[in-house]
Amino acid sequence: MTQALTHESTRREIATDLGVLRYHEAGDGPPLLLLHGSGPGVTGWRNYRGVLADFAEHFRCLVLEFPGFGVSDPGDGHPMAMAGRSVGVFLDAIGVDGPVDMIGNSMGGIVAATVAINAPQRVNKLVTIGGIGKNTFAPSPGEGIRLLMEFTDNPTREGLVRWLHSMVYDPSVVTEELIEERWALATDPTTLAIASRMYSSAAFAANTAAAKASGATPYWAQLSKITAPTLLTWGRDDRVSPVDMAMLPMRDIPNAELHVFPNCGHWTMIEAKEAWTAAVLAFLLRKDDV
């Protein structure tokens, strides 16, 4: 039986070069870093609160709150860049210098994959929840990203509800409680301003153009460099990161396996909670990969 964990009992903070980083900590054992996604009102706690106790039975769970999303200090950079930098800064600050298992949801999966590419000594095993790769058959950006840009350009409650419904297969997941807690943080002026650096339609177009003009190799073209055993988890009915995105990482990451959950949208750890948790724990606890 899993233990009861609360937001208050697990909340921690630490001063770093990126300002104060806040996080949640639970459990004992080898370190497991959980990285959240993006979008209006997101936090690490909200992404992982439903599964944290299950993982805390086996691991020292560390749920990092990325700068700029309303929990850790805001920072002055692009949210994705700040998130990527924060992983190493955070692990150094809390004294974890060896490899850790990482779970990354959506944007957090891209961050974790990028760490695995550029600092492989940091990553023991890697689990992603949608998000990584490149659209192979479906149009890009996906429906959920387009709705996210619409909300960022015009932050209305109706726009938030439309975006939330694009995240899930089962509309009953989008409760009034979920809408209200997301709305409160999503419309915080500082958080909304930082989100605009990434997801306003103008910023999205500018960032895409700048990335092409730079000639830099995108992370998805470097997935073959990931040496960590990797579990890709995906909702079959994901409307944010269509499941065809999994084709590239499934083929390019040398030691990757893919688990697709039916009747499930972008939030696999929420909509397919029991099946997802069982699959991820089996992968992380398996001894023949390391």
Results as ranks from 00 to 15, higher is better:
208 T>I: 00
200 S>V: 07
178 L>N: 02
218 P>H: 03
218 P>T: 02
190 T>Q: 13
189 P>I: 04
203 A>N: 11
175 T>R: 05
211 A>C: 08
209 A>P: 00
178 L>P: 05
189 P>V: 02
216 A>E: 12
186 A>S: 12
179 I>V: 15
179 I>A: 09
182 R>C: 10
180 E>P: 05
221 A>G: 02
172 S>T: 13
206 A>F: 00
181 E>V: 13
197 R>S: 06
214 S>F: 09
183 W>L: 09
223 L>V: 03
188 D>F: 05
220 W>Y: 15
208 T>C: 00
192 L>Q: 09
222 Q>N: 06
176 E>N: 10
202 A>G: 07
197 R>I: 07
214 S>G: 12
217 T>A: 07
192 L>D: 05
184 A>L: 11
212 K>N: 03
179 I>P: 03
207 N>I: 11
195 A>Y: 15
187 T>E: 07
199 Y>F: 14
211 A>Q: 14
183 W>E: 03
193 A>H: 12
200 S>A: 11
216 A>S: 08
223 L>Y: 12
180 E>S: 13
202 A>W: 07
187 T>H: 05
188 D>E: 13
199 Y>L: 10
201 S>C: 09
212 K>G: 00
185 L>W: 06
177 E>R: 12
216 A>L: 11
187 T>L: 03
202 A>D: 14
215 G>R: 00
196 S>D: 13
172 S>D: 11
192 L>Y: 08
198 M>Y: 15
206 A>I: 00
222 Q>F: 00
194 I>P: 07
185 L>N: 04
177 E>A: 14
211 A>R: 14
174 V>F: 04
198 M>D: 15
194 I>Y: 06
208 T>E: 04
201 S>H: 10
172 S>Y: 01
213 A>R: 02
174 V>H: 02
222 Q>I: 01
202 A>Q: 14
214 S>A: 09
176 E>A: 11
203 A>T: 10
200 S>L: 06
189 P>W: 03
193 A>S: 14
216 A>K: 05
179 I>L: 07
218 P>G: 03
200 S>H: 08
213 A>E: 01
221 A>N: 09
181 E>H: 11
184 A>C: 02
211 A>Y: 10
188 D>L: 09
175 T>C: 08
192 L>S: 07
195 A>V: 12
182 R>P: 05
216 A>N: 06
180 E>H: 12
221 A>Y: 06
201 S>V: 04
217 T>R: 08
201 S>N: 03
174 V>T: 01
203 A>R: 11
173 V>Y: 02
219 Y>W: 15
222 Q>D: 03
186 A>Y: 09
215 G>Y: 00
174 V>E: 01
204 F>I: 02
223 L>D: 03
216 A>R: 07
196 S>F: 13
207 N>A: 13
200 S>Y: 04
175 T>H: 07
221 A>S: 12
172 S>F: 01
219 Y>P: 13
174 V>C: 03
221 A>C: 04
210 A>E: 11
201 S>L: 06
180 E>Q: 14
219 Y>M: 15
190 T>G: 02
188 D>A: 10
173 V>S: 01
187 T>D: 02
208 T>R: 06
177 E>P: 04
196 S>E: 15
212 K>R: 13
182 R>G: 04
196 S>R: 15
